[in-house]
C-alpha cells in the first residue's frame, strides 16, 4: 500500500512533547513511582501497590489538614472575591487618580512571599508589632503564637492583604472593558445602581470572576511560604495546611511513599475542585 501521509510533521510537535514531558510528565511519574513502591535507599524498590494511598486516606492528620485547608480556602474566597469586586467598583475609571490607585493596589502583589510572611510575623507580634500591640491595646487578648484564633485571624488577614489585589485588578480590567453605552442605556431605562450591578456589571464580569475565583482557589489551596514563615503551622498544628503537612511528611519524616501518595491525592483534589468550579460557573453558558 502507498503510504500517503507525511511523518515529517511529527518533528514540528516534538518540541512541545519534550517540554510537556520534562515539566509535567517526568516529575509526575517520579512521584507516581514512589507512591506505589517501597524503598530503603540503595536504589532498591519493592512493589507496595495501593498501601500508601490507603494509609494516607485513613490518616487522621491528613484529614485534619484537609479540613483546615478547605475552611481556609473557603474563607479566603468568601472574603477576597466580594472585597476585590467591591473595591474595583469604587475605583475611578478615568482621570489622574487611576494610575495612582492601580500602583497602590498592585504593591502587595510585588512583595515576595516569604517577605510577606516575615512582615506579618513582625507586625502581629503582641509585644512590639503594630497590629499585635494595637489589638491588645483595644483590650482584646491577641497572641498568634499561642491562640489558634489569633493565628487564623493573622493568616487570613495576611492572605487578604496579599491577594485581594489580584481579584481587584482582574475585576477592574473587566469593568473598564464594559462600554460606556451600557451605563447610558441603563440610565435611559431608569435603572437603579443595584440593577446596573446585577444586570450589567455582574453578567459582564462573569468570565473575569471565574478566572479570579479559580486562581485564588488554586493558589490558596497550595499556600505554603507565607504560613510557614508566619506561624510554622502552629500553634500546635492549628494552621497546618495541606502543603505544610506534606513537607513535614516528605522531608521531616522522610516517608517518601506516603508523601508521594499524598502529593498525588493533593493534586487530584485541586484538579477535581477546579474542574467543579469551572463547570458550575460555566453551566449557564451551555444552556
Amino acid at each position: 500500500m502507498n503510504k500517503t501521509f507525511n511523518n515529517k510533521a511529527w518533528w514540528l510537535v516534538l518540541p512541545v512533547f519534550l517540554m510537556v514531558a520534562f515539566n509535567a510528565l517526568v516529575p509526575l511519574m517520579t512521584v507516581v513511582n514512589y507512591s506505589i513502591q517501597e524503598t530503603f535507599g540503595n536504589n532498591e524498590f519493592f512493589w507496595s501497590g495501593t498501601t500508601w494511598f490507603e494509609q494516607i486516606l485513613h490518616d487522621g492528620e491528613f484529614h485534619a489538614s484537609l479540613k483546615r485547608q478547605l475552611v481556609f480556602t473557603g474563607l479566603i474566597l468568601l472574603i477576597e472575591v466580594p472585597l476585590g469586586l467591591a473595591i474595583a467598583l469604587c475605583m475611578p475609571r478615568q482621570g489622574p487618580w487611576v494610575s495612582v490607585c492601580l500602583v497602590l493596589v498592585a504593591l502587595p502583589l510585588l512583595v515576595p512571599w516569604n517577605v510577606v510572611g516575615s512582615m506579618w510575623n513582625i507586625m502581629a507580634l503582641p509585644d512590639i508589632g503594630l497590629l499585635g500591640k494595637g489589638i491588645n491595646a483595644l483590650g482584646i487578648p491577641f497572641n498568634y503564637t499561642r491562640q489558634p484564633i489569633s493565628a487564623w485571624f493573622t493568616v487570613v488577614l495576611m492572605d487578604v492583604w496579599h491577594w485581594t489585589s489580584l481579584v481587584l485588578l482582574l475585576c477592574y480590567a473587566g469593568l473598564v472593558a464594559i462600554p460606556d453605552a451600557y451605563y447610558q442605556a441603563a440610565k435611559v431605562d431608569g435603572a437603579r445602581p443595584w440593577a446596573v450591578f446585577r444586570y450589567i456589571q455582574l453578567p459582564k464580569l462573569k468570565h473575569v470572576l471565574t478566572i479570579a475565583i479559580l486562581l485564588r482557589f488554586m493558589d490558596s489551596f497550595m499556600i505554603y511560604t507565607e504560613v510557614i514563615v508566619l506561624t510554622g503551622g502552629g500553634p500546635g498544628s492549628t494552621t497546618k495546611f495541606l502543603s505544610i503537612d506534606l513537607v513535614q511528611k516528605a522531608l521531616g519524616g522522610f516517608d517518601l511513599g506516603p508523601a508521594a501518595a499524598f502529593s498525588i491525592v493533593y493534586f487530584l483534589i485541586i484538579l477535581f475542585l477546579s474542574w467543579l468550579f469551572y463547570t458550575l460557573m460555566m453551566r449557564e453558558e451551555a444552556k
Binding site: P179, A181, Y182, Q184, A185, K187, V188, D189, G190, Y199, I200, P203, K204, E284
Partner: peptide, 18 residues
C-alpha cells in the same frame, strides 16, 4: 433622562447580557 421618556440605540449592540 429617565423622566423624559426617551429611548436610545447605540453603535455597539447594547442589551442586557443575561
Amino acid at each position: 433622562v429617565q423622566k423624559r421618556n426617551v429611548s436610545m440605540v447605540y453603535q455597539q449592540f447594547i442589551n442586557y447580557p443575561n
